[in-house]
Amino acid sequence: MRTAQNGPSPSATEQAIIRLQQIRKIYKVGVERIHALAGVDLEIGANEYVAIMGASGSGKSTMLNILGCLDRPTSGKYLLDGQLVSRMGSGALAQVRNDRIGFVFQSFELMARASALKNVELPLIYSNVGWWSRRKRAIHALERVGLGDRMSHRPNQLSGGQKQRVAVARALVTNPSILLADEPTGNLDSKTTVEILALFDQLHREGQTIIIVTHEEEVAAHTQRIVRMRDGQIESDLPVQEDKDQHSQERRIPTSDDVSDAPSGFDADNFDNERIPDNGRPATTTQAPEPEPRSPQSDEAGHEPTPTPARARWASRGASR
């Protein structure tokens, strides 16, 4: 059916599933205009395994929303499976989300009162799938993530990892072109993180195109390609090995300094949303306040290697306007 199921054939990898051309997203806060995305060009082919990284405020959440067809860019073209989705109405976008995109969220977003099976069936309710094939596909998706024996369990009877597996099964049940995961391991401990990442690896081997939005390097290391974002633009877009060489010392994890420095109102990433809770994040990452190392290589993306945190720069840009 979809390219995702055809497996990683050479022709499939060359074919672009996602093509972003000069995508801009501008938010208006009062009279100020915030450029959450400032002209992004990106192509992602079938069966790619991509991590989108960036600090808070780098525009990665906006990127995720646009990639996931939850939001429309202010300008620019977004072609998904060769179809122009950047100018679609909300009803048509819902259809696209239903058919082509599978979401995995940080906080799982399972319906508490429904069984795992019912949760997985949810997207199919909104597509034209009959009762029986809905059930069959949901069972198949649960088996794919290794939860064939937990189908009638409710979310509160499942562990965190199992919950996220159910969420992955729900994302897969419609055979989407892309699987979009937003901090999929953010609420999991390190052991379960490994488990879920292994699941993603397995899905990738099975031919699924996967995009993970994360700020954890060890998560990104599982992927094949890392897109780093900064100030609403793509800072670097490299295969994982090259990226590792370039960013070996530069692990940008938002530290407490970052957050306290950020003036509110210029948080382009989350300006209209509540901040994503960091509650479940493994303690090791937050405990390691690495001393803001900047490598000089980072200016290859056209930015001066200034140690100014992204958000502070947003502030100066906004104020100058």
Partner: peptide, 14 residues
């Protein structure tokens, strides 16, 4: 949140 989820997985406003 449930409404958000339903919309994210493809529920139309209608």
């Amino acid at each position: 949140r449930e409404i958000g989820l339903r919309k994210a997985v493809g529920a139309k406003p209608s």
